[in-house]
Amino acid sequence: MDVRIINPFLAAAMHVLKTMAEVDATPGKPFLKRDDVAVGDVSAIIGITGAAKGSMALIFTEPCIMGIASNLLGEEFTTMSHDVRDAVGELTNMICGDARRRLAEDGFVLQAGIPTIVAGKSHTITHIADGPRLAVPFETATGSFMVEVAFGRSD
């Protein structure tokens, strides 16, 4: 997997959070992740097909998503409600879409499915492609989240 593929997802995460929720997200250093345990409290994963087959996941700590969801929807959230989980799904949808638009500009055309949302401490995320996945940690004013992508070969 070409590690540069993470860059459009990184840019998309910052752009979507800034535009929709007025949240500044600062990326940390990308790394290769080899296990399925999510470092967070709620996640969404979305399948990707086309020029490559894989998936993207967003993993939020609880304080982080409470802050983002509150900004996004204009009301304060303090518990992991259905509304907060739904927001995780829609953010995943938008970030994946924005990243695919950026990749398409370089001739790398991808399609995406509909996100699946999982919540709970130390839950697992199973990516579609085997092998390591690229992960980028982000910091926001209310906490951290992670973007993971994993791609194998196209069919």
Binding site: G97, D98, R100, R101, A104, V109
Partner: peptide
């Protein structure tokens, strides 16, 4: 979130009135 040129062309062919890309 479907912002690729192919998507927009498909929507225009189906006579969409206008198109907003998320975000």
């Amino acid at each position: 979130a479907e912002a690729q040129k192919e998507n927009i062309v498909e929507a225009v062919q189906a006579k969409v009135s206008n198109y907003v890309v998320k975000p």
